[in-house]
């Protein structure tokens, strides 16, 4: 699964730390999601979509091997 989290974060100009604080997770979690090492739960994905004001599908995209 790929995601546009880093891009969206850059557009909004917020740090990993600030984003983590907004949705109540650690900075490491945001970093792991951005690096595709961790797939977030539905709740976390919805929280992220709310912060960036985007649909979950716009933030996360399935790949062929998923």
């Amino acid at each position: 699964m790929k995601n546009r989290l880093k891009i969206e974060r850059a557009i909004k100009d917020i740090t990993q730390e600030a984003l983590a604080n907004k949705i109540g997770v650690s900075r490491q979690t945001i970093n792991s999601i951005e690096k595709n090492r961790y797939i977030p739960s539905t709740i976390l994905a919805l929280k992220l979509s709310k912060v960036f004001d985007k649909n979950v599908c716009e933030l996360f995209e399935l790949e062929d091997d998923d």
């Binding site: 650690s26 490491q28 977030p40």
Partner: peptide, 8 residues
């Protein structure tokens, strides 16, 4: 900070 990644 306890989140879903920590739990995993």
């Amino acid at each position: 900070i306890e989140d879903e990644l920590t739990h995993k």
